[in-house]
């Protein structure tokens, strides 16, 4: 390696350990880490940008990678890195736009935690930018169609799948199981939340007959996918994936709480609802009914409210004092308000 490049080699103990590990995985004699930096965001997972030069072997060349590992305090509801790696592999193999997973490391001796390495896709993700800066999304309808079609590809993955045996089996009645889980969680808190109880009651009474059970992403929304030159390059953050009712993902993607700067554009603040559902239908062969979408949008607000309460608890009771977590707790008020707006609309 020329001397001028050598100075770019990151030789911290962690980067060096990663280089040695990658030599094994990539069947190479010389792997050098040229960049290793923590990426911003991710209260639950830690992501690191990882660039490597591989001198020999089947992976010879330079690689732009992302290393994904658990944040020091993980949330119970999320998958382990090994489970997420398995899901990502199945999804990627099924043609879903997602980063290609490369190697999993369960040996905690390398960097002290389980992690996996995946290819780094180009594009930007922040929802407040994608919904505000028209230059980033020149054709919102086309992007929404692609997002709908891509989601339908995820939903085409159905149990049983041997490599996904690591996931919990699907609940017999996903909506009611979720409602029971949320009530159980709320019962453990100091305060009562009448607005959330009201929405839960409605969802319980109006729970729909069971639908197909498929793989669901459970965090498929603006802010969790990359857009490069207006095009979808990949969906990120698979840590909540599991088997469930595919309508849950449709409600989550279109819920008002995930439209950022453009609440009037129902498809994730990117476009109107129709192109998104058109794209979905073009692959799935079915289209969600308006009443079902309303139901799952209400469930989306409930779910986000429960997660926000969990984040608030980490700050208030979990010994993890953090302004960001405290402010996330205050979002509960908005979610109660939006849930009630939806209930009022549905009744009208």
């Amino acid at each position: 390696m020329p001397e001028a490049l050598r100075e770019h080699v990151v030789d911290t103990p962690e980067a060096t350990a990663l280089a040695r590990w990658l030599e094994g995985e990539m069947r190479a004699h010389d792997v050098r880490v040229t960049r290793y930096e923590r990426l911003p965001g991710g209260a639950i997972q830690d992501n690191f940008l990882l660039d490597v030069d591989v001198a020999d072997g089947p992976f010879r060349g330079t690689h732009a990678l992302v290393l994904r590992t658990d944040a020091p305090t993980a949330v119970a509801a999320s998958l382990t890195r090994a489970q997420e790696f398995a899901v990502l592999r199945v999804a990627h193999d099924a043609g879903v736009a997602a980063p290609k997973p490369l190697f999993l490391c369960r040996d905690r001796r390398v960097i002290g935690r389980e992690y996996f390495v995946m290819e780094r896709l180009p594009g930007i993700a922040p929802g407040h930018r994608l919904t505000r800066e028209a230059a980033l999304v020149p054709d919102g309808d086309a992007l929404a169609r692609a997002l709908g079609a891509n989601l339908a590809k995820i939903h085409a993955i159905r149990p049983p799948i041997a490599v996904l045996d690591v996931l919990p089996p699907p609940a017999a009645d996903p909506a009611r199981a979720t409602i029971a889980e949320y009530r159980g969680y709320l019962d453990g808190l100091e305060d009562a939340y009448p607005a959330l109880e009201c929405a839960l009651r409605w969802c319980d009474v109006h729970a729909q007959s069971s639908h197909d059970v498929t793989l669901v992403h459970r965090d498929y929304r603006t802010g969790n996918y990359l857009v490069d030159a207006g095009w979808l390059t990949g969906v990120l953050d698979w840590e909540f994936a599991g088997f469930g009712d595919p309508r849950e993902d449709l409600g989550w993607f279109t819920a008002r709480c995930w439209r950022f700067a453009a609440p009037g554009r129902e498809a994730g603040g990117i476009a109107a609802l129709e192109p998104f559902l058109d794209g979905y239908e073009s692959v799935a062969g079915w289209r969600i009914a308006r009443a079902d979408l309303d139901y799952w949008q209400l469930m989306a607000h409930l779910r986000w409210a429960i997660i926000a309460l969990q984040q608030a608890q980490r700050h208030r009771a979990g010994g993890e004092r953090s302004l960001e977590l405290a402010l996330t707790g205050r979002i509960v008020h908005e979610l109660e308000y939006e849930a009630l707006q939806l209930l009022a609309q549905i009744a009208r």
């Binding site: 008020h333 308000y337 009630l340």
Partner: peptide, 22 residues
């Protein structure tokens, strides 16, 4: 019930994030 809870939720959003009020 929905109307009363909405009133409360509006009051709280007016404190937490008034921009979110419709």
């Amino acid at each position: 019930l929905v109307a009363a809870l909405m009133h409360t939720a509006s009051d709280r959003v007016a404190i937490s994030n008034p921009k979110a009020l419709r």
